[in-house]
């Protein structure tokens, strides 16, 4: 498949700086010995490796958006969920903008469609999810049950199959002229949270806005993202999964693999290729080829995770 992407592993990745761009639907991730690899959903490569486990990333559902190029965002989210379900991942990560305007009816619809997967799903908020009451409705509905014993708010961590997953919130308390924001309290929590993990623990960080600067002119980055990355530097395998920019981008820097997922609602233009980052208009027949999900597979003993990005349709 043309738009299947693979990270290289081991020493080949070290010092390598790549930035690649696709358009798509969702990503399934396979984790092999620590480094996730992504691939487009529907790809044979997204199959769970023996001895490992896989999880999926869904992003930017924007339930409530009903304009050109997608007047039926529930339908494309449902298609993404069906695609993910067919791959039977151990869990799903939703990297935010579940809704378009934080309205209860939008959350209802999203919760119903995502819940139909029957797969454990972990969420972080996008800026579109935190528009009401400081984000409380989103946190209460989508995060509270996952965060027993955690500090509250929209960030938390959990462990599964030897991987330490960290969900961050970089969409609140934004400052004029700034980018995404983690803030002092969250960074202090992250430092404490990571302190308890050994260097060899595979880490998967997921947050809405890219933690690395993709394109500052459009706000595609996080002001204090570098401080979070500095805390992650000592780990042998770090995978950073983001959404927000509605297209696949990937970069590898040292032991850190960065990846952004497609939206399930509408594509956005590549950085600087349009006057603004608004929804990209595509013909109805082509829409699903630029939406997608991602799958990630983990194989113990391997140092990278396999990430496969899959479009929702041809």
């Amino acid at each position: 498949m043309d738009d299947t992407t693979r990270t290289t592993n081991g020493t080949d990745r070290r010092g390598l700086l790549t930035c690649m761009l696709w358009a798509g639907t969702g990503v399934i991730w396979t984790v092999a010995g620590g480094i996730p690899r992504s691939g487009l959903l529907g790809s044979a490569q997204a199959a769970t490796p023996s001895g490992g486990f896989s999880f999926a990333q869904i992003s930017d559902s924007h339930i409530g958006f009903a304009r050109d190029p997608n007047t039926d965002t529930p339908a494309t989210l449902a298609a993404a969920v069906a695609q993910v379900k067919a791959m039977a991942p151990a869990l799903i990560l939703h990297t935010g903008d579940v809704s378009h305007l934080s309205r209860p009816a939008e959350f209802d619809t999203a919760e119903k469609i995502l819940g139909a997967s029957g797969i454990e799903t972990h969420y972080v908020p996008g800026e579109h999810d935190m528009l009401e009451d400081g984000g409380t409705p989103f946190i209460e509905r989508f995060q509270k049950r996952h965060t027993p014993g955690q500090p509250g708010g929209a960030f938390y961590s959990f462990d599964q199959q030897g991987i330490h997953f960290v969900g961050l919130n970089n969409v609140t308390d934004l400052k004029a002229g700034g980018l995404g924001n983690l803030g002092e309290a969250q960074l202090a929590w992250l430092e404490r949270d990571l302190k308890q993990r050994s260097d060899s623990t595979p880490i998967v960080v997921f947050a809405h806005i890219p933690l690395w600067t993709v394109y500052a002119d459009w706000g595609w980055g996080t002001d204090d993202g570098a401080r979070a990355l500095a805390l992650l530097k000592r780990f042998g395998s770090v995978t950073v999964l983001n959404g927000h920019i509605h297209q696949v981008m990937q970069k590898v820097e040292g032991n850190v693999a960065f990846h952004t997922a497609r939206s399930t609602a509408f594509p956005q233009p590549a950085p600087g290729t349009a006057p603004g980052p608004g929804p990209m208009k595509v013909e109805a027949g082509r829409l699903r080829s630029v939406l997608g999900v991602a799958s990630i597979a983990y194989v113990p003993g391997r140092s990278d995770l396999a990430i496969v990005d899959s479009p929702l349709g041809a």
Partner: peptide, 12 residues
């Protein structure tokens, strides 16, 4: 009076 977009803070 300076202002920005609370969703897209690069807009000022």
């Amino acid at each position: 009076y300076s202002y920005f977009c609370g969703l897209h803070p690069h807009m000022q």
